[in-house]
Amino acid sequence: MRILKYDETKCTACGICESACSEAFFKVDDRNKSVIRIEEGESNPKITVCNQCGGCISVCPTSAISRNKNGVVVIDKKACIGCLSCVGFCDYFAMHYHRDQTEPFKCIACGICSSKCPTGAIWIEK
């Protein structure tokens, strides 16, 4: 399974990953449109990103969410009707939405953010 892994002790909360993600997929620098979120944690920054558990697949009423051949959970935007059930039922708060579009969005382990992380706090594991 292809998955974005992280080590919070290495994270400096610089926000480069968030910018890279939102720029890649929404063409804007806006952390609210990033699927990786860095927040203040108790001792280290807290990283929230999809762990590809697939818990969202079964709650989708149109079966728009599936696992691809790399094991990554992906959303078929064409089939999605924007109910956001998957957002509410993600136990890890890793499924996101934004008022600018009807469909939710999530990490597809593309690696764009990890390639730009200056500290090696995030990486793609296959």
Binding site: C80, L84, V87, G88, Y97, T102
Partner: peptide, 25 residues
Amino acid sequence: KGDTNNPHDLGILQDAGVKVHREIN
């Protein structure tokens, strides 16, 4: 689609909906 009803403000519906989906979950 999520906006077929052509709402005045989609974000309001999304915020309220997600809040209740989470309560149910």
